[in-house]
Design a protein around this nucleic acid. Structure first.
Lengths: 270, 270
DNA sequence: CGTATCATTGAGGCGGCTCAATTTTTGTGG
DNA sequence: CCACAAAAATTGAGCCGCCTCAATGATACG
């Protein structure tokens, strides 16, 4: 991995490689024209773009880890996402022609530049590519929706649990171990992302560790019971109890045994 | 308003009208081909699409009010948005070819159908239209980001306050009064949207009413101090509210013109 | 006019935040 | 390589904001 890392700013990808990274069907490359996309490297801590900066290009993560953040009117950071290999970011700049968020490298990164002009031009030539770009943007929107849903309805423990699961699955996709990995972000950043304080994140990880769901040692995380993490939740707030009761009744009518709620629900006392 | 409502299913819009509704620059209509887009009417309570239903068309609100919701694995509703005139929805279906959310009419609605195939075909002919569609999708993404940020960082009072402000501005855009309007959704739906319980929403509205920021009577909302609502972060403790209300009253009595920069905003930023 | 839905309001509990102290890790320069 | 400082992480104590549970009032609809 990270081949050619040393050759700074000299890497290029063709369209086929671009599609591979984005996990979209290969564009029919009847193209004799050798379309190339430039790579750019960033070191840990460097900013890729800032809020308000004029927009003209999207970024695709070839390798490395980043965060995107919003800065509110009092200078507080709100983490929006942790882009990694295959993710697209910068989309929020299309609308106002200026980036609405800021992107920062959490590790050394290799990014593929995708000028917006080039994207639209490509879309007009390759129908599948146009569709793929819409699809990727739709995927981003669905992800944000899931995020909203999580922040609005889940307990702190459930949020941290799902965060770990999604990270684990993401690592698996990228060919790394899904059972043992290092966090690339601080507790503070995780907390911001999940709408929690860093102390709550730390405490929750410790609690999961005590129960045996995971192992924690600073940035190193070991996933011990992924199924329990996936299904962990708690009292459903801000939602209609009537529906839940109804659903529960029909469930109980169907299967009279087996309590539908996992017993992890009560671990708050720990 | 709602002209031609009676002629059910017989309304059509051309491309120019479509662009107007979407608030995007008019596409250069060198088009002799009279491209028409079908309208559809829905009555209060009807579902436009459901989760998992095969996706093939986007919807643009011509008139009326709706909600889009996610249903979690236990039947709990999570409100994602309240589409109204000029809004596009259904975008979340592009990625998986199935709608990821459910859309329900909160009032009688007139929607414009925008088949995805037609959209992409149009984008290939009219460059500006393609760009506009990307822009609209980007706008949606930015909106979701703002939502995440709000859920992650703001207090209940601030969320309700901003919700009211954004509604007010939205009504102003549509040509209605920004000072006095009716809520089209229940407290429960507002709560779900904001990640709060319906009781908290109700209590917060009552509190705003008490201190003179708004007037509330069931679904009817009067905006009295939009600036204070915009900058509000945290309400003063109830013990001290009485004095401030009194102070405010004497202020309003003294100077009947515009309320000066309110002091509600700068409390307890911590 | 009765019933179901929606809204208001109160009392009380607890989950997650705040404040604070300590330990561990990271980064930097002598 | 070690020393030192800064940042990150852990853990505890206390409290408050929001949720839960519950009862009543208001509104819409057949």
């Amino acid at each position: 991995m990270e081949t050619g890392w040393q050759r700074q700013g000299k890497l290029w990808s063709n369209l086929k490689e671009l599609c591979e990274v984005l996990r979209i069907p290969h564009v029919a490359a009847h193209t004799d024209e050798e379309l190339l996309f430039q790579h750019v490297q960033f070191k840990t801590g460097q900013r890729i773009h800032t809020i308000g900066q004029p927009f003209d290009t999207l970024y695709i993560v070839h390798s490395g880890f980043l965060k995107t953040v919003l800065i509110d009117e009092f200078g507080n950071e709100q983490v929006l996402s942790f882009p990694m290999k295959g993710d697209l970011f910068g989309v929020d700049g299309i609308h106002t022609k200026r980036y609405a968020s800021e992107a920062v490298a959490l590790s050394n990164c290799d990014l593929i530049l995708l000028p917006f002009k080039k994207l639209t031009a490509l879309g007009r030539v390759h129908v599948e590519f146009e569709h793929a770009m819409y699809s990727v943007m739709s995927r981003e929107l669905v992800r944000e929706q899931a995020m909203v849903s999580m922040l609005g309805a889940l307990s702190a423990e459930a949020r941290v649990a799902r965060f770990l699961v999604s990270l684990s699955e993401r690592y698996a996709d990228m060919g790394y171990s899904s059972k043992l990995f290092n966090l690339r972000m601080t507790r503070h950043e995780i907390g911001s992302y999940l709408g929690l304080t860093l102390e709550t994140v730390s405490r929750t990880l410790s609690a999961f560790n005590e129960i045996g769901l995971i192992t924690v040692d600073q940035r190193s995380i070991g996933i011990k019971d992924p199924d329990a993490l996936k299904t962990l939740r708690r009292l459903p707030p801000s939602s209609s109890r009537a529906k839940q009761v109804a659903a529960k009744k029909s469930k109980q009518a169907a299967e009279q045994k087996e309590s539908p709620d996992s017993d992890w629900g009560q671990l708050a006392s720990a």
